[in-house]
Design a binder for these strands. Structure first.
Lengths: 194, 194
DNA sequence: GGTGTTTATTGAAATATTTCAATGTTTTTA
DNA sequence: TAAAAACATTGAAATATTTCAATAAACACC
């Protein structure tokens, strides 16, 4: 079932045969992740990449003041990884935590290298997925620059209505870059206007 | 000379022979870009990707109020493109303008597809470059969330000291997401403290 | 099921940032 | 090289946002 989901996801980007998919299947391991469990903790080295089959994750950093800042939320069919740590072999500035009881397909860094060698199409797959990630980060930067706090909040409600019910105001605030009290006030405004 | 620069850049990511590089050379055309000239205008389709040999570009979007927001600056050895438009075949929300008299090596979208077919290593090259782009966008998001305006300004001075002398305060402000008057005040503070 | 902990709401005061306007400086263009 | 345009600086007033504190509500854990 989980592998079927991954296969379906891959087929959105590249064409592969059942035969070829067996290579992928070999390297991806199913892993259960409890609610609140960390897949990666700030300061560790990120040695994996994971595909979310079920559940919800938050990728965030904690600054010197102890404040948390959310880089992104990952729901079903998203990938979680700290590329900076994985690629540049530095300790991670990010933590990755399950917000619900979740399930991922996880591939180790070294197995990913093997996969690239055995299935050159994997290069294309990850190139295309990387491009998608760039596009979404770029859109986020544009939104952060061009919208003010309340607009960003309303934009999030519109465009990520699937995420909203799965996260707290505090987590949302740490994504939008505002205080959670302000989120509370915006929510009140939004209800009033409806 | 320009091709040599591109080759050197490519060799940082993948190993290719002189023979293979000739394929790349075939598809990349040298183009002069005058100061203030646009390589892409918001509303057009982005049908190219370009490597900056010489000069400096600004990638930005103009919102409904006419305010400009800078997504990034591209100096020598950077790439310029609106991936969202290129990949998703939508009109671009971004403009790309030369801030100085510049020179780029430009490859057409369809030639890039040909290159992928003829040199599978190109997939790896663009995968690795995409990963680098993700890492830098991700770092930017973290900085925007965790630093306040003045810290972002000082951080830019530190980390992009090569860009600073080539752009105006207004352009810097549009990158940092603050008013240019505030940049002026921060600059005054920074000089005072020195 | 009760208790402790986290989350959400609200208002008031403090702070950060923008906007506006006026002036001087630098750069561009004819 | 002069005139026009864009850029930079500064201060004051307006606005947006944070911080703090107090209370209520929801959730987690024996």
């Amino acid at each position: 079932m989980e592998y079927h989901q991954l296969k379906k996801h891959i087929l959105k980007h590249i064409q592969i045969t059942d035969e070829e998919f067996k290579l992928y299947q070999k390297y991806f391991k199913i892993q259960q992740v409890d609610k609140r469990q960390f897949l990666l903790k700030q300061g560790e080295y990120c040695l994996f990449e994971a595909f979310v089959c079920k559940g919800c994750f938050r990728v965030f950093t904690t600054d010197e003041d102890g404040k948390e800042h959310t880089v992104y939320f990952a729901l079903e069919d998203w990938w979680i990884v700290d590329l900076d740590s994985l690629v540049n072999k530095v300790t991670s500035k990010l933590s990755i935590q399950a917000l619900e009881s979740s399930e991922v397909l996880i591939i180790h860094k070294s197995d990913k290298e093997k996969l690239y060698k055995e299935s050159p199409k994997a290069e294309q797959l990850f190139r295309k997925m990387s491009q998608k990630a760039i596009i979404s980060f770029q859109r986020r930067i544009v939104r952060n620059l061009s919208l003010k706090a309340e607009e960003r909040y309303l934009d999030f409600l519109d465009n990520y209505s699937n995420i909203v019910p799965r996260i707290t105001n505090i987590q949302l605030a740490s994504y939008l870059g505002i205080s959670h009290e302000l989120v509370s006030k915006f929510r009140k405004n939004a209800i009033k206007k409806k």
